[in-house]
């Protein structure tokens, strides 16, 4: 089992949880399982073709999944998956203000 860190903007899909357990041997499988537990979240991370969105980066431990094998990257027991969306960073959090 792996561990998925949920960023603040996506916690509305996980009932406020900042970390959820992940299951699956590839990143693709982990995200599919995440969707089955928390409907709607996958669309925030992947586009309609199932590819990672360009304004979201997914890290497996410290490494950007894009520079591993993307969605086919292997996920091992104990891996930590971090989802890092682009945040404008405002304290007002109006993304396009």
């Amino acid at each position: 089992m792996s561990q998925i860190r949920i960023p603040t903007p996506l916690r509305k899909f996980t009932g406020g949880m900042d970390e959820v357990p992940g299951s699956g041997n590839t990143l693709r499988a982990v995200l599919e399982n995440l969707e089955s537990q928390h409907a709607g979240i996958r669309k925030q991370i992947c586009d309609s073709n199932g590819e990672l969105r360009r304004f979201v980066n997914v890290f497996i431990n410290e490494e950007d999944a894009r520079y591993l094998a993307g969605l086919d990257s292997e996920i091992k027991e104990g891996d930590v998956i971090s989802i890092i969306p682009a945040i404008a960073g405002g304290t007002k959090n109006r993304p396009g203000e």
Binding site: R53, R54, F55, N57, P85, A86, T91, N93, R94, P95
Partner: peptide, 19 residues
């Protein structure tokens, strides 16, 4: 990291203000 900004409907909403 982020070649383009997210489209408006994918960015955190304006109502989620606060820090």
């Amino acid at each position: 990291l982020y070649p383009e900004p997210p489209p408006a409907d994918m960015a955190p909403s304006c109502a989620e203000a606060g820090v």
